[in-house]
Computed example of a mutant assay.
Amino acid sequence: MPPSRRDLLNTKKGFIVHKAVMEVVTVKDILAARELIQRFIKLTPVLTCSEANRIAKRNIYFKAEHLQTTGAFKIRGATNAVMKIKSKYGLDHPGVVTHSSGNHGQALACAANVAGLPCTIVVPKGSPSCKVEAIKGYGAKLVECFPSPTARVETMEKVCKETGQVFVSPYDHADVIAGQGTIGLELVEQIPDLDAVLVAISGGGLASGIAMAVKSVRPECKVYAVTPKGKMLEDCLRAGERLWPNPPQFLDTIADAIKLQQTGFNTFTLLKELAEKNVFEMSDEEMIEGMRFSFHRMKQVIEAAAGAAVAAALSDKMASLPAEIKNVAVILCGGNADIDNFPWYDSFKKAY
């Protein structure tokens, strides 16, 4: 069985922290990923909105990854990882496993289904039903766990031991990071004079991959992370070290896709080098307004994580960016919103 290149470290306090063995991701890896996955994914469009430009006083370009296969950018990294496994080992392989709140789980299940490999997804209890049902629809085996980062890792480790399946991290796997970086290659082709990118971040695979790709072509382009309240990412980036408390925890946010407080180990190393130190922290209320703006002004259905990035672009915080930043890309990272539980649904019912 091929090694997963992952260590599970027992800390002195008795909890388990998932730590990745350091893996170097290069632009060459991203270019190779693009070649490998291009027939399995969509080249997503860049959308514009005059009202967004007016509010932001800049040119805002929305990269529509919510229109991607499986409804989120995650299919890029998952497909790259799975297809590399298949190309090396063929179908004589026990398959893949991951833990995911939904989008990576859907993506890995879909990629494994296409490749013909077995797949198990560890899902925290309470994950959005639309994502859970989609995972089942791709034929993956579903295993529920207690909704905490530690429980996710413990359950995933158990599956690995029982099945021999290889863990594909939602964010800290080199092939996943490279796959997500293909978005950056598309961005600099679609927006040649790109000055900045706003990207919502959880474990950091998307942000670090995009930063690596974009800066290889436009070193002056800035990449800003967008997070829920309490992530502490700006403190960590400015200090140049991981200041997060352990055990790892989830943030109290409506954005289920970006609720993990800590980033990955590989991704944090890349973000320290490539991302801007100032981070856009958005409240739940601001995320909701970002979603509503997208629904109302752009007629696009996005989930709360994408709403965070939209809200950041339309916020007063944009005024603090250098004046020379004129062209800003916003990653609409996913559209798998639970339509039965929109965050403003209760107030809507009361009004009507």
Results as ranks from 00 to 15, higher is better:
Val96Asp: 12
Ile37Gln: 09
Ser4Gln: 09
Ala20Ser: 14
Lys74Gly: 09
Val96Asn: 07
Ser127Pro: 00
Ala20Arg: 00
Arg58Ser: 01
Leu67Arg: 14
Thr120His: 13
Thr98Cys: 11
Asn10Val: 07
Val27Glu: 12
Lys19Trp: 03
Lys57Gly: 13
Val24Met: 12
Thr26Arg: 08
Val24Ser: 07
Ser50Leu: 08
Leu8Glu: 10
Thr11Lys: 05
Ile16Ser: 12
Thr48Cys: 06
Ala134Lys: 09
Cys49Phe: 05
Arg76Met: 08
Met83Val: 03
Gly126Ala: 07
Arg34Glu: 15
Leu36Gly: 06
Thr79Pro: 08
Leu47Lys: 12
Val122Gly: 11
Cys119Arg: 02
Ile135Ala: 03
Val25Gly: 00
Phe62Ile: 03
Leu8Cys: 09
Met22Tyr: 11
Gly71Tyr: 02
Lys88Glu: 15
Val97Ser: 01
Ala81Val: 01
Ile30Tyr: 01
Val114His: 09
Cys49Gln: 08
Asn10Arg: 08
Val122Glu: 02
Val46Gly: 09
Ala33Thr: 02
Asn59Asp: 15
Ala81Lys: 03
Thr120Leu: 10
Ile75Asp: 05
Thr70Trp: 10
Asn103Lys: 05
Ala33Leu: 07
Leu47Tyr: 11
Pro118Thr: 09
Ile121Ser: 00
Tyr61His: 15
Cys119Met: 05
Ala112Lys: 05
Asn113Cys: 13
Ser129Ile: 14
Thr79Met: 14
Tyr89Pro: 03
Leu117Lys: 02
Lys125Cys: 10
Ala72Phe: 08
Lys84Phe: 10
Pro124Tyr: 04
Ala52Glu: 03
Thr79Gln: 15
Leu108Ile: 09
Lys13Thr: 12
Ala134Asp: 05
Met22Gln: 15
Thr11Ile: 02
Asn113Arg: 14
Ala134Gly: 11
Lys125Glu: 14
Ile135Ser: 07
Ile16Thr: 15
Ala64Lys: 11
Ser4Glu: 14
Thr11Arg: 11
Lys13Ser: 13
Asn59Leu: 08
Lys131Arg: 13
Arg58Asn: 00
Leu91Arg: 12
Ala78Ile: 05
Pro128Gln: 07
Leu43Tyr: 14
Lys63Cys: 02
Asn10Gly: 05
Phe62Pro: 07
Pro2Ser: 10
Ala56Glu: 01
Ser129Cys: 11
Gly14Val: 03
Ile37His: 08
Pro3Ile: 01
Asp92Leu: 10
Ala134Glu: 08
His93Asp: 14
Glu133Gln: 08
Val132Trp: 03
Arg6Asn: 06
His99Ile: 02
Met83Tyr: 12
Lys28Asn: 11
Val132Ser: 05
Gly14Arg: 02
Ala109Lys: 11
Ala112Met: 06
Arg34Ile: 04
Arg34Trp: 10
Arg39Ile: 07
Arg5Asp: 08
Asp7Pro: 06
Lys19Tyr: 05
His66Glu: 13
Ile30Pro: 00
Thr69His: 11
Ile85Pro: 01
Pro128His: 05
Cys49Tyr: 04
Asp92Cys: 10
Ala33Trp: 02
Gly137Tyr: 07
Leu142Ser: 12
